[in-house]
Design a protein around this nucleic acid. Structure first.
Lengths: 212, 212
DNA sequence: TGCAAAAACCGAGTAATACTCACATACCGG
DNA sequence: CCGGTATGTGAGTATTACTCGGTTTTTGCA
């Protein structure tokens, strides 16, 4: 699946492609995906429509390229957090706190892009697959932490994936769409409390449903 | 916000509109939202394109109308579940079990529609708002259960909203996109265990972060 | 039952837009 | 300096969401 039609080789080409991505990010954020025309993207980037289609096979691929750039930044930030966890080896409470803080920061940093990727966009199969892959990658790193903390249970990957899926939706909602009757900070605190409790009590057993 | 351009009054009109919605549901599921043309929807419904636009202001509104029909069915199913909970007053474990089972059934019942609404569609502001409203409605019902169970904490609405947001994403992932290394049933069991543990131990305190 | 008025239906036509292609220009290795 | 390759161009085309003037069907009522 050649997401990019032509890989930019010369520096001039790299600059052109970056300009196109920047223009697309701006216009998508301003007017939404559907209302943004590829001709306008090219215009704002200062290139011809033909140049845009040299690098990108269609409008969806343009979005996918944008997603790729965003996910790379997110992966870098998360990588830092996990490196620190591996170094400090904090307890469950602090581990949850740091993870949630990192995710919340990512959402606060570029809310328009986050809304674009998760709210306002037709999820092409390719994009949906890419987002799932990012989720699985994060799940793997989280599984390692669960094991370190002794709360991984019999299926670390499964437990980690559920944690990641839940957390992502919750942080997204808390940061970007806080309901009128709660503040974003309140929700984040509650979120940390919820997951700290969960991981603090779930232990190693499988379907631990006793609540004595 | 007149979601429908013209309210069907005569029974013939109601049949026409239903046929349009059915055709749209089929074609969207078969080819995706973007690849489905409104002309084809009208054709499959056996009506003219003009008739379609009598009831629906644009393609997005067609999707919204479809969502409305789906959310109504979901609300009915959930209503049954909550009525039963109110009657039987089961403990935390059984309450979580029933809630998760209902959500999982909803996803299994019409997976194509669920994927359409949550994966493959441009979330028009109107659609996004409608989905958030459905989430808040469910949150209110859940908050009442948390209070009954004595695990609502100082902000029942906030806690319930986080629960609903997390659960929805987790059930969606478990039922519709199970990763290659876990089964859907396994994930659902783990999900029930996670939330039972959480609610079984979180108690009434606010930011309960002690893990002793 | 007859008949206006309203409701429902029709489909060729229009405007908008994603994308192509034949060509021009800029850059690089030898 | 020069052949070849990479990059850039933009008028034009095909597709498709949506309109509008007009016809047909149903309803309410004298």
């Amino acid at each position: 699946m050649p997401q990019l039609r032509r890989q930019p080789r010369q520096t001039r080409a790299r600059a052109t492609f970056d300009a196109i991505l920047d223009a697309a990010a701006q216009l998508f954020a301003e007017h939404g995906y559907a209302a943004t025309t590829t001709n306008r993207v090219a215009e704002r980037a200062g290139v011809s429509i033909g140049s845009l289609y040299q690098y990108v096979s269609d409008k969806d691929a343009l979005l996918l390229a944008l997603a790729e750039r965003h996910l790379q930044e997110a992966a870098d930030a998360l990588s830092d957090t996990f490196r620190a966890l591996h170094r400090d080896r904090p307890d469950v409470a602090e581990t949850v706190r740091r993870l949630v803080a990192t995710l919340a920061d990512l959402h606060r940093h570029d809310p328009a892009m986050h809304r674009l990727l998760f709210d306002q966009t037709p999820r092409t199969p390719a994009l949906a697959a890419r987002l799932r892959q990012a989720q699985r990658d994060l799940g793997r790193a989280v599984a390692a932490e669960l094991i370190r903390l002794g709360v991984a249970g019999p299926h670390p990957q499964a437990r980690a994936l559920l944690l990641v899926q839940g957390l992502e939706a919750q942080v997204h909602g808390a940061v970007l769409e806080p309901p009128p009757d709660s503040s974003s900070a309140e929700l984040i605190d509650e979120l940390i409390a919820l997951w700290t409790t969960t991981l603090g009590h779930i232990g190693q057993g499988g379907a631990e449903t006793r609540i004595d």
